[in-house]
Structures are given as structure tokens and as C-alpha cells.
Design a protein around this nucleic acid. Sequence first.
DNA 1: AAGTGGTCTAGACCACGCA
DNA 2: GCGTGGTCTAGACCACTTC
Lengths: 224, 224
Amino acid sequence: MGLPKYMMIRNHLMEKIEKMDVDTPIESERELALKYDVSRMTVRNAINELVNEGYLYRNKNKGTFIADKKETLNLGPASSSFLDLYNNEDVEYILIYYSVKKLPEISVRLDLKEDDLILRLVRLTKENNIAKSVDEIYYDYSYIKDFDVRNIYKLMNLSEYAKNGKLVQKITASIIPDKYANLLDIGYKLPGLLIESVIHQKDGKPIIYVKSYHSNKESIELTL
Amino acid sequence: MGLPKYMMIRNHLMEKIEKMDVDTPIESERELALKYDVSRMTVRNAINELVNEGYLYRNKNKGTFIADKKETLNLGPASSSFLDLYNNEDVEYILIYYSVKKLPEISVRLDLKEDDLILRLVRLTKENNIAKSVDEIYYDYSYIKDFDVRNIYKLMNLSEYAKNGKLVQKITASIIPDKYANLLDIGYKLPGLLIESVIHQKDGKPIIYVKSYHSNKESIELTL
DNA sequence: AAGTGGTCTAGACCACGCA
DNA sequence: GCGTGGTCTAGACCACTTC
């Protein structure tokens, strides 16, 4: 079975609005309902999603307009962390690089000795085929003794570890490193969010350290 | 004119669910529709708001349940410091500028008409005599009819408003505007965090919009 | 089989903005 | 006076879970 109607409309709208300028109006709800041959409520459902995600904003009695922030990550209750917080099915992780070696500057974060081995993964995270972040993931190598190159894709999925332990995250602004700018499809020397995360076991031992560079098309939203 | 029906239902639900335990189900949408004598779609509207705000979560074919809000409330002190939510004695606010005028680009945020008056305060926030952030604070002027210049310092304290309502924050990276660089005692063109906040009344009406530029000596820490 | 949330319809009236 | 989004109705069918 295919997507529900409102999702298809949502996606059609998304393609359009990406090409449009900020503050220009989209077609009215009634026009869209006619165009797609659905009821107005279905159009509203589609638009509601885009409004909640920050792509559009409504202006009563006037219309619906392109928002100035193209990307908004909604840190709702469902997503317990900034890691893997994309609700969408269309999230894709692309392995850029990996190695196993000593990384003294990282071992501090993982409460290891300088001589301990660390597995380093660098992945590109895409959602709906749009580059969202580059994530450097550092594992305590002894924690994954049975490591196997063929299983490396399993290691890119952090949500299970985060679910079963404690997560501490630090958010700072940072100029995106040049080496990642191309991957993120942005220019050089632009600001972005650097989210550093440490995933601990329940006993408190840190296992994974993540440095995640988010392009500034993104933002994080909290509701308190 | 009173609140719309779905808002009243939303508020009724809110009162109830605050007393309920996490993961317990609320009444079904059909039951609530009967109870409040409205259509099911109206109930869904009310529930949708609470789901989007993180108070409830839906479970298909099962029901709607109380969410665990603690995760998103469990923010570190740094993130809330600019909202005066924590009691550091050594926080100091310095008024840089204020005006009352029409600000069309802000009125959208406060759900006001373009012609409505807005009070704009710009303050420098220091902690332990170190500049932390420059905050642009926008008030719906009609909300503070009894405004008096002599009371302007009271308006710089946002904690009471935030405590009594809902707070939505959006975090992005931004180059700190040159006009604020000197105040923050940093160089030009450096990245920092831009935290946009909207403080709502309990009924959902937005009252205050804040743009807060944090020098990158700051960071936000979360424990989940 | 009964109940749930997810989606959808084809209308309706309202308050407001604008020309 | 017309178009807009905001709200609302009274149904409907679906896929799924639970009993």
C-alpha cells in the first residue's frame, strides 16, 4: 500500500516550496484541495506537518507562506536525544571512513587510557536525501570485542545504545570544518551546531562519544 | 469571545493528565467526543496539540497515553540561564536599549497584526561579571498596558512569565552580529548560539519573543 | 467481534484582511 | 464582497490489536 494522500501532498508541496523564496505565499488550501481532488481537511493535514516542521507558517486571513528557516528538528518526547532524532523513514547513514587506533584526545572522553584502542566511524546522515549532519562516532573498542567489518553498519545505529543508557549532550556553535562542508553541501567557514554526546552504560561507564556537525540549515527545537 | 472548543477540551485534558501516571491511557477519542458533545475531529485537534507539546503520545490501535515529560524538562542550567530559570545571585542584566513601536517582522511571532505595538528591550546578561549573552526581548505591548518606564527593569525578568506558561525554544548557530560583538567581548564574525524563545500563556497565546545571542564561550548541556 | 487511532469526505460558519 | 485560514460536523472505511 502506498502513502496516505496527505503524505503525497505533503511531499509534492515540499518539492515546490524548496524552490520558493521566503515569505512568498503558497496556493490557498481550497485551491490545493481542488487541484489534488481531496477535501480541504486533507490539505490542512499536509500543511500542518510542514508548519510543525518549520517549512511554512500560516498567517490568518492572509495565507500560508514559506518560512525563513528551512529545517527545524523537533525535539519532542518521542526523540529522546539529538542522535537519530529523525522521525522519518527516509533517514540514511553513509559510512565515510573508519579506523581502529589510539586516539589520546578522545580516550579522555571515554574514560580510557591513552593506549586503549578506539573505533572511529565517520558517517554522513541524510534525511529525504538531504545531508543533515556529519557524525564522528568513537567507540570504546574493548566494548565491541566481537567487532566485525561486516557488522559495521550496525554500529552506525546508536539509538539502541542511547535507549539503554544515559546520554549527556553538549551543544555549541562551531564553524563547520572545511573537510565536512562538501559533504553537507554548504560553503566553507559557515556556522553550524556541534553536538557532542556521550552515551553511558547504566552503571555510568561511558561507551560511545559522538561529535556531530549539523549544517545550519538545521535547528533544534525544545518545548518546555 | 471565548476559547474555541478544542482549546477548552485541551485545557480540561491538561488538568487531568497532570495528575496521571506515565504510560496510563486517557479516554478514547470517541469517548471524549461523546463526553464533550463534539465531533471526533475536534477531540483530535485538542489531543494533537498535547501530542505536539509532548504531554501525550499515541499508540496506533491501542490508545493515547501519558508521556514522560521529564526527559525534555531535564535541561541543564546553561540552557535555561538566559530565561532566568535558575537562581544565580551573580546574574546581572544591563539595559542597552528600549523602544515601543511597530515591528512587522516580529508581530508574526507574537501572533499580532502588523500595526500592533511591540515593546523591544535589548539587554546584556552578565554572570559573575562576564558577558554571557545579548537578548532582544519583544513584548506584546497590549499585554503590558500599565507599562511604565520606571518598571522597565521588572520586564527584563522573564522567569515569572516562563514559569506560568509554555516555552518553546529554538537553537541555531549564527554569526554574532557585529553590533553585539563588543558587548560580548568577542571578535567579529565569530559563531555563537542563537536561541529563539516564545513564551506562551497557558491558553496558547504567545506573549514574549526573545532572540538571545550567546557568545561561543557558552554551551548548552543536556542530560537525558 | 469489538475497540482503537489514522485517514478522509463534503460540506458549513466564523472573523478577519483587503481592495 | 470576496478570499483566507480557523474551527467544526457527522458521518465513513481502514489496519491493527485484544479478547
